[in-house]
Simulated scan of single mutants.
Amino acid sequence: MGHGGNVVDELMADHREVEEMFARMQAMTGGGQQLRDLVDEVTIELVRHSVAEEQYLYPAVREHIEGGDRLADKELEDHSRVEKILKQLEKMSTDDAQMGPMLQQLMDEVAAHVQDEETNLFPGLRRACTPDQLDDLGDKVRRAKAMAPTRPHPAAPSTPMASKVLAPGAGLVDRARDFVTGRGKSS
């Protein structure tokens, strides 16, 4: 969850972590509790990552990169699609016939989003920001991930200010629910 380094290094480490979880998911032969635990683990990581990007990365993209509004808006649309899939997966039994196709849709959406960020957004941010700015953003992203919700909230506003105000409270409630249920502790 917190890897260290500047914002690009931090977020790319998250990307690799999620890709590794997806590879474990694809290698699974059955479903059941093992699959539910892995889906929960992926959900926790993706929600935290998305909240941190919405609070700090995309405002920096808007501020520092030419055409940043367009880039940030596209990434927010990606997040919205992923969060809706995560919400559906949260409610779905692992033996549901739609689980496999829904997981594949999630993996495809996330892979396209990662490719876009790493090809377009991150290089532009590296060119536009100083190393100190990138390090500061990395610190902010790590703090945001530590306080972020762990469950999808697709109806929540994705503006940076609303997210900064609402995410810590939602995160506290989500982490309390996770503690009581043991969610996210099996890996």
Rank of each mutant, 00 (worst) to 15 (best):
M28N: 02
K164Q: 14
D37Q: 11
S187A: 10
Q34W: 15
G68E: 05
A13N: 14
Y58R: 06
R142Y: 07
S158Q: 15
E63F: 04
E19T: 12
A27K: 10
T29Y: 02
H79E: 01
G31Q: 09
G138I: 04
C129E: 07
A144Q: 08
A72E: 00
A72S: 03
M1C: 12
Q104Y: 11
E75V: 12
G68H: 05
R127S: 13
R127M: 11
A167C: 06
I85D: 08
L71W: 08
D69Q: 13
S80D: 08
D135Y: 08
G138M: 05
E53M: 03
M25G: 03
N120M: 04
L71K: 10
A128P: 05
R142I: 10
R48Y: 05
F122G: 00
V165D: 01
E45L: 08
M161I: 14
D78C: 10
D135I: 08
A23L: 07
D116C: 03
H64S: 12
A23G: 06
L137P: 02
P168S: 06
Q98Y: 14
M102Y: 10
R48L: 01
P101W: 15
I65G: 05
M92F: 13
E54R: 01
D9F: 15
F22W: 14
A156M: 10
A170I: 11
R70M: 12
L121N: 00
V114H: 02
A162Q: 13
P101G: 11
G5T: 09
L76H: 07
E17S: 12
R151C: 09
R151K: 15
M25P: 09
A52H: 01
E109Q: 02
V61Q: 06
T29C: 00
E109N: 01
A60M: 08
D132H: 11
D73S: 07
E83L: 04
G68F: 07
M102S: 12
P101R: 15
H113N: 01
G4V: 09
L125V: 06
D95R: 13
E75D: 06
V141I: 14
D9Q: 15
D9G: 10
Q88F: 12
E63M: 04
R36W: 08
M102P: 00
M21Q: 11
G4W: 14
K87C: 13
N6T: 10
